[in-house]
Design a protein around this nucleic acid. Structure first.
Lengths: 228, 228
DNA sequence: CGTATGATTGACATCTCTCAACCAATGTGG
DNA sequence: CCACATTGGTTGAGAGATGTCAATCATACG
């Protein structure tokens, strides 16, 4: 029996043209692979939650649009991440492709697991769900800290942890995405980047290309709660 | 076969003196009931995650203490809520009793579900986990909104939803708890309460006793993103 | 009644937002 | 190859919100 991790894609994956079926897993045999262009919507808040998704390549985001047009980004999802789990029948957030990305869509999780083959998947999904809680809690912790510099430092460390060992952090999202994720404005994000660069904590040869020069200091900045 | 909801306690529950065993569910047969006094620690960040908990009575909180002594409250847990799920072997947050409360502790969830009787529970736990994601996401959304008044309004509505229909909201936590949950200071919480009262959106006969006078307006305040 | 604790209020400093201008990189057409 | 526009990012000045520190008030408890 296969598993949700065994989707035939390993590591870096090229986007595929059309949808493709997977026949291995029992509740996941209808996994459909789709490519999304940068900025494309995957699903919208309020839509019926028919599917959940796994990222194969690229980065996706979930967010909520507030009444006055403001946007709050909830999370960025990396290759291997699952999103779109919903306890009830509809999505509570909007999902969009940050850059070009490829996803595999699985049919909605049934609340009552019925046959034996599904149990293995339930166990696996449970693990993913716990990771989702962890992710959301860390995000809340990040947002609760007051100082913008601290938020950005936390974001960079979090980002770097997805691809450790690389010389440069290549930001796939723009300043607006980061701002909405951190709950600040793009100007504040920009100023914080500039300050980190000025203090020689990071280097920024290009706006979306960051190198961490002093990781220990970055971590200290991330851990401090406010500007005081 | 029983379920995790079938813990023999229904609705309001009186704290019991000592631990008590439950023999019904297979992975949950070792559910231990314990009473915690107000302010007592339930587990600490970094402890081995041996158990997860269900609230029977009272309210518990999970939080993280930052390096400089600052505290960020992650969530409040109400009767019926589960907390303490961890994907890895140790707690990432500290859990404490807000007021006097009674909990039932279940042995740690195994990652690999082995016997058939556990499957039913896995399905149930998955549902709880999804609720946990929902809760954490809503909290992050609350924190991302900038204006303190909006955060407090959101908190009051969230609080009220736990006991709808009551004339008064009886706050079980103090101002510091609320402040740490919303990521602001107690002074700002206090000022926001005062403003809501001044604007006749709420009434506050006592510091911990709130009545919502104009729910529609409170919702509007909660939805606006900033002070602008 | 005095004390202790929690909550509120006030004054001022600081941070972030807002609005505006400017800069850099990119692409287009002449 | 060079204007030119467009987009995304940065910088600046002033306004507004929240933090900080301190004093005051309210309540509960001896």
């Amino acid at each position: 029996v296969g598993s949700i991790d065994d989707d035939g894609f390993d590591g870096a994956v090229h986007p595929v043209a059309g949808p493709a079926f997977r026949e291995s897993d029992v509740p996941f045999r209808h996994g459909l692979v789709h490519a999304y262009a940068a900025g494309t919507g995957i699903y919208a808040e309020g839509d019926g939650a028919e599917r959940f998704y796994k990222v194969l390549s690229g980065v996706a985001r979930t967010c909520r649009y507030l009444g006055d047009g403001q946007r709050q980004v909830d999370a960025f999802y990396w290759p291997g991440d699952l999103f779109g789990f919903e306890p009830d029948g509809q999505y509570r957030l909007t999902a969009e492709a940050v850059g070009d990305c490829t996803l595999v869509a699985y049919p909605r999780l049934r609340c009552v697991i019925q046959d034996a083959a599904e149990y293995r998947c339930a166990s696996q999904l449970l693990d993913y769900a716990l990771r989702g809680i962890e992710r959301a809690q860390e995000h809340a912790l990040l947002l609760g800290r007051r100082c913008a510099l601290s938020k950005l430092a936390g974001f960079l460390l979090q980002y770097d942890s997805h691809r450790p060992g690389h010389r440069f952090i290549e930001l796939v999202m723009n300043r607006q995405d980061i701002a909405d994720y951190l709950g600040v404005t793009i100007e504040t994000v920009s100023r914080s980047f500039t300050q980190l660069e000025h203090d020689a904590v990071i280097a920024m040869p290009a706006a979306k290309r960051i190198a961490i020069l002093d990781r220990a200091r970055l971590q200290r900045i991330a851990e401090q709660s406010g500007g005081a």
